[in-house]
Design a protein around this nucleic acid. Structure first.
Ligand SMILES: NC(=O)c1ccc[n+]([C@@H]2O[C@H](COP(=O)([O-])OP(=O)(O)OC[C@H]3O[C@@H](n4cnc5c(N)ncnc54)[C@H](O)[C@@H]3O)[C@@H](O)[C@H]2O)c1
Ligand SMILES: NC(=O)c1ccc[n+]([C@@H]2O[C@H](COP(=O)([O-])OP(=O)(O)OC[C@H]3O[C@@H](n4cnc5c(N)ncnc54)[C@H](O)[C@@H]3O)[C@@H](O)[C@H]2O)c1
Lengths: 219, 219
DNA sequence: GTGACCATGTGAAATGGTTCACAAGAAGTA
DNA sequence: TACTTCTTGTGAACCATTTCACATGGTCAC
C-alpha cells in the first residue's frame, strides 16, 4: 500500500529496475499484450517475480490477483513514478565527441528529456547548428539557462573544467546533472548528480575476465 | 589477508570503487604524493575510510599502519586486480553517433583497452578511416575477430540487431561485451556482459527531482 | 453460482553489504 | 629502548535488500 505520505526511502536499485520494467512494458505494448504477470516481466529482464512485485509494492498495488498487470496502466503508473510523464528542459554542455552523439539521440526526447540548449567555449562551435539547435557561448550560460527555465544539465566537457561549470549551472538554478567527465564533482545537497563512467564498466569486464568472476547480473 | 585461493565473491560495488580509487591514485601520483591514508582516499571519492580499507582487504594488505598506502604501489596493485596492467584487444561494432565518439576517446587505450577493429554494415561507412582504423564489413566479423585475437567488444548498434550480433561475436570467441543498446541481451554464462544505459540515469534524475529523493551517493 | 485455479501483495527469513570499534603494527622522538 | 602517535586490518554489529512462502482476492469455465 503506498500512502503518498509514507516516505520510505526507495533504493537506487529499485528505481533502476523501474526503468527496466518501463522498457519492457513499452515493448509489450507494441506486441499488443493486454496484461503481463510478474513472472513474465521478470523473465524478460532476468529478475525474479518476487523482486518485481516487491518493487512495485513500494508505490501501490497495480495488479489484479489471478491475472497480472494491465500493460498500459502499469506503464503509465511507472511513467508517473519516474517523472517521465512530463517534459524536462535540458541543456547539454560540451558539444564534442560524446556531446554531439547525445544531441542526435532521439530517444531522450521520447522520454520527456528535451535538449533545448547547447553550450561550448570553442569559437568554431559557437553559432553552429546541431539538429536545429544553435550552440551558445558558455559565457551566456547563466542568463540563457534562467530564461529557458532549464533544470537539468548533461555535462560532456573535459574533467579539468567540469567543476567550474557545475558551480555555474548550480548558481543558475539547475537541480539535476548527468556528468560524463571522470571526476567526483561537488554539488550542494539540493542538487542531484549522476555519473556516467564508461571506463568503470570496461574495468569491470576486465576484472571479470581476469578473475573468472561469475557473471551474475549485468547491472 | 588475501590468499589467492580464498575465492570469496567480490561485490560489484567493491569493484566499482576500485575504479574510483584507481582514478584518485592516478591523480595523487601526478600531484607527487608519496603516501595516502584511507581517510584521504575516502574523502576524495565521498566514501568512508572503513569502506576503503575493507575493499582493499579483500585482496591483501597493502598499507602500512601509522602511515597509509604507498601511492605508486597501491595504484599498481589495483591495476593488477582490475586486469588493466595488460593490453586488451577490443572491437567496436556500430560506427554511428556513439560509436564514433568512443573511437575518438584516447583514455581507453591508456587503460589498456585498445580498439583495433571497427565493424559496420553501412556501405558508406565500410572502408572509411576513423582515427587510423578502417571500418570493416560486419560480414567478415567472425574471421577478423578470430585473426586479430579480439576478446572484448563494444556494441553500439541499434537495439533491433544487437542480439544477432551478440550471438555472432560469442561464436567468434569474444568473452566480454559492453552494450549500449537499451535491450536485455542473452549471453552464455561464460560471457561477461555489461550494459551502459544512459536513459536509466536520466530517469533516475527525473525520479529524484519529482520525489525530492535525498541525493545519497551519485553511483 | 460454485469451484478450481492463478497471481498478487506482503510479513518474515535469509542473504549481502556497510559501518563500527579496537587490537595490533609501524614510524618517529627522545 | 621506551613511549607516543598514527593508521591499518578485521571480526562483529548493524542496516539494507532480496528471496521465501502463503493468505488473500480475483478470474474463468461450466
Ligand atoms: N568520447 C568518449 O567516448 C568519452 C567516453 C567516456 C568519457 N568521456 C568524457 O566525456 C567528456 C567529453 O569527452 P569528449 O570525447 O566528447 O571530449 P571533446 O574534447 O570532444 O569535447 C569536449 C567539449 O567541451 C568543450 N569545452 C571545453 N571546455 C569548455 C568550457 N570551459 N566550457 C564549455 N565547453 C567547453 C570543448 O570545446 C569540446 O567541444 C570528457 O570528460 C571525457 O573524459 C568521453
Ligand atoms: N547516440 C546516443 O547518444 C545514444 C545514447 C544511449 C544509447 N544509445 C544506443 O546506442 C546504440 C547506437 O546509437 P547511435 O545513436 O550511435 O545510432 P546510429 O544509428 O548512429 O549508429 C548505429 C550504427 O550501427 C550500424 N549498424 C546497424 N545495423 C548494423 C549491423 N547489423 N551490423 C553492423 N552495424 C550495424 C549503423 O550503420 C550505424 O553506423 C543504439 O542502440 C542506441 O539506442 C545511443
Amino acid at each position: 500500500m503506498a500512502s503518498p505520505l509514507a516516505r520510505k526511502r526507495i533504493s537506487e536499485s529499485t528505481i533502476h529496475r523501474l526503468s527496466l520494467y518501463y522498457r519492457t512494458l513499452s515493448l509489450l505494448e507494441k506486441e499488443n499484450y493486454e496484461t503481463v504477470s510478474s513472472k513474465e516481466l521478470a523473465k524478460r529482464e532476468k529478475l525474479t517475480p518476487a523482486q518485481v512485485r516487491k518493487d512495485l509494492s513500494f508505490f501501490g498495488s497495480f495488479g489484479t490477483r489471478g491475472l497480472g498487470y494491465n500493460v498500459n496502466e502499469l506503464k503509465s503508473k511507472i511513467e508517473s513514478i519516474l517523472g517521465i510523464n512530463r517534459d524536462w528542459k535540458v541543456a547539454l554542455i560540451g558539444v564534442g565527441n560524446i556531446g554531439s552523439a547525445l544531441v542526435s539521440y532521439k530517444e531522450f526526447a521520447k522520454q520527456g528529456f528535451h535538449i533545448i540548449k547547447l553550450f561550448d567555449n570553442d569559437q568554431r562551435k559557437i553559432g553552429s547548428n546541431h539538429k536545429g539547435i544553435i550552440v551558445s557561448d558558455i559565457k551566456n550560460l547563466d542568463s540563457e539557462i534562467k530564461e529557458a527555465g532549464i533544470t537539468m544539465v548533461i555535462l560532456a566537457v573535459p574533467a579539468t573544467v567540469a567543476q567550474y561549470i557545475v558551480d555555474d549551472v548550480v548558481k543558475a538554478g539547475v537541480t539535476a546533472i548527468l556528468n560524463f567527465a571522470p571526476i567526483n564533482l561537488r554539488v550542494p545537497p539540493t542538487v542531484h548528480l549522476r555519473n556516467e563512467n564508461m571506463s568503470m564498466e570496461l574495468e569491470y569486464l576486465s576484472f571479470a575476465m581476469v578473475n573468472n568472476h561469475a557473471p551474475k547480473k549485468s547491472k
